[in-house]
């Protein structure tokens, strides 16, 4: 497709930036008084909404998630498109000649042939999501969010070890985190197991 390389380069921008830069950038974008988001809402006439973003216990965790989605989409675009480019073109041509539409080709050809990559993607995403320490520590109020709303396990581990001096407890948390990660990876690989397709 024309321009697809440009899109891939642009989508990948957040991946090469330090998570510290990304988190700081969004801390300002979320600023309720002069941040980019609320002044954008003002500009389009929604000035009655003006959420507190990171200051609102109900919204803070969603804000953290949005930042992580923002910075990680590019990785998966590149990962999946690398996997897709190894699918032979003939398959699509054959399917199109047989009258399949694009939704059908996506679900019947692309997805099954890409399944291994999708599974790896899930496992990667699980590890990444369990390790959202930097965003929470840099960006959220406190840090840890209002009313502990953004306190994730990795951040809890950090505060226990390096603020409260409970090294043993923190190590236990670390092992628990490892078990959760391994369980998650095991469940994904087990549930998602399908017949391996050679092509």
């Amino acid at each position: 497709m024309r321009g697809s390389n440009v899109y891939k380069i642009v989508y990948f921008f957040p991946q090469v930036l330090s998570i510290a830069i990304v988190a700081l950038l969004f801390q300002f974008a979320y600023n309720p008084n002069s941040g980019a988001l609320n002044s954008f809402l003002d500009a389009v006439g929604l000035d009655s909404v003006r959420p507190e973003w990171l200051g609102d216990p109900r919204l803070a965790l969603w804000c953290v998630m949005a930042v992580m989605v923002w910075s990680n989409v590019g990785f998966y675009v590149v990962l999946f498109s690398a996997g897709m480019s190894s699918i032979p073109r003939d398959f699509y041509e054959a399917a199109l000649l047989d009258g399949a539409n694009r939704v059908q080709t996506f679900f019947r050809i692309t997805l099954p042939l890409l399944w291994d990559t999708v599974q790896t993607g899930w496992v990667y995403m699980g590890i990444m999501a369990l390790d959202s320490f930097a965003v929470v520590q840099i960006m959220t109020v406190g840090p840890g969010g209002p009313d502990y709303s953004t306190e994730v396990l990795s951040f809890y581990l950090y505060t226990k070890a390096f603020r409260d001096g409970q090294a043993g407890y923190a190590t236990t948390l670390g092992v628990a985190l490892l078990i959760v990660t391994l369980l998650f990876a095991g469940v994904v690989l087990k549930l998602g197991r399908r017949e391996r397709l050679e092509y």
């Binding site: 497709m1 697809s4 899109y7 989409v73 998966y76 675009v77 897709m84 041509e93 694009r102």
Partner: peptide, 21 residues
């Protein structure tokens, strides 16, 4: 994620379809 990857794929299918046309 699905939202962004699907169009990529869809559009590459479109190009091959356009080629067919």
């Amino acid at each position: 994620m699905a939202v962004t990857t699907e169009p990529t794929e869809g559009s590459s299918a479109v190009t091959s379809r356009a080629g067919k046309a």
